[in-house]
């Protein structure tokens, strides 16, 4: 199993449970706005603590309230692509890309910086500051930064939202390649049924 997740969440005043197992390479998490999709990704990444439950990804226990396991985010090694890109504003694109790469365990990398720059077409952006990037450019850099930290799995939060059609198509193709060429479990949050239909081997509804 790639994902075995059964958690009880309480975020602000909203309580919900997420319970699924999936052995699909790419699992999509869908549901109406505000239902807790992003919170679920945060919990899996270790940024939010579930009230109780168990999170196992690719055989590794990341969180288990009964067993007293709660790995900090830096030990979980999630490649998390945030919806808002969340690039470091004081670092140039090259430094953003290198941030996680430098901290990755030796020999664990799944792609090189050159490959990332070529795949995502961001070679010409390396000297720029995030504030000068368009939404699509920032998104691509964020994906590159996540891939370079030698992740054990990927969390993608609306990676194609608010991109124009051409850009979305390019990224969609790229995500298909990532799905097929890397053996990384991927969890995708999306509102687009077309995107989900095309990428996901398994769809989990959160309601």
């Amino acid at each position: 199993m790639f994902f075995e997740i059964a958690i009880d969440m309480a975020v602000d005043d909203h309580a919900f449970t997420l319970d699924f197992s999936s052995d699909a390479k790419l699992t999509a998490l869908v549901g109406p706005s505000g239902v807790g999709k992003t919170s679920s990704l945060n919990a899996i990444a270790g940024l939010l603590r579930p009230r109780s439950g168990r999170i196992v990804v690719d055989g590794q226990v990341l969180f288990d309230s009964a067993g007293g396991v709660d790995l900090p985010p830096e030990k979980r090694r999630a490649g998390y692509v945030f919806q808002d890109a969340r690039l470091f504003p004081h670092k140039r694109v090259a430094a953003n890309l290198a941030y996680g790469e430098r901290l990755a365990p030796a020999g664990a990398s799944i792609v090189t910086r050159d490959e990332v720059a070529r795949l995502l077409e961001i070679s010409h952006l390396l000297d720029r500051l995030p504030a000068t990037l368009s939404g699509g450019e920032a998104r691509r850099v964020a994906i590159g930064r996540a891939l370079l930290c030698a992740p054990r799995f990927l969390l993608l939060d609306e990676p194609l939202a608010s991109l124009d059609e051409d850009r979305a198509e390019t990224l969609l193709t790229l995500m298909e390649r990532l799905r097929d060429e890397l053996s990384l479990p991927m969890l995708l949050v999306s509102h687009s049924s077309a995107e989900v239909h095309r990428l996901a081997g398994r769809v989990v509804k959160l309601a």
């Binding site: 940024l47 985010p73 830096e74 999630a78 490649g79 969340r86 470091f88 504003p89 941030y99 930290c149």
Partner: peptide, 25 residues
């Protein structure tokens, strides 16, 4: 603070995230 969270997912310990994100910003 979400930038600090992003740094953590990329492998930074709380101290490193503080030194590389919160402090310079």
């Amino acid at each position: 603070r979400r930038l600090v969270g992003a740094a953590r997912t990329l492998g930074a310990t709380p101290l490193r995230a503080f030194l590389t994100i919160t402090l310079p910003l």
